[in-house]
Amino acid sequence: MEIKILGTGCPNCKTLEKIVRKVVAENNIDAKITMVQDIMAIMSYQVMTTPALVINEKVMVKGRVPKRDEILNLLTAQP
């Protein structure tokens, strides 16, 4: 699974990264996590609010930091 976190480096983006890494590690999810900080790359996903969580190239969450349960649900719901 490919997880991308879009954000220009604001505090919330870092919080989201931390939570995602924790959820992935705790549940032994096989995923590659990348931070996307380049504004041009972020805009290619057409998000207008950051941070955004992208799973397998699909924007799942944007403009807020979801709770751990929600992230876990999103990750385990992936095929």
């Binding site: 954000g7 220009t8 480096g9 604001c10 919330n12 983006c13 504004i39 972020i42 805009m43 057409q46 998000v47 207008m48 609010t49 950051t50 403009g63």
Partner: peptide, 15 residues
């Protein structure tokens, strides 16, 4: 106003 969102918003409007 989170200053980090102003650029994505700007681009979103322009696009």
């Amino acid at each position: 106003f989170c200053s980090c969102s102003s650029v994505p918003l700007f681009i979103g409007f322009v696009s």
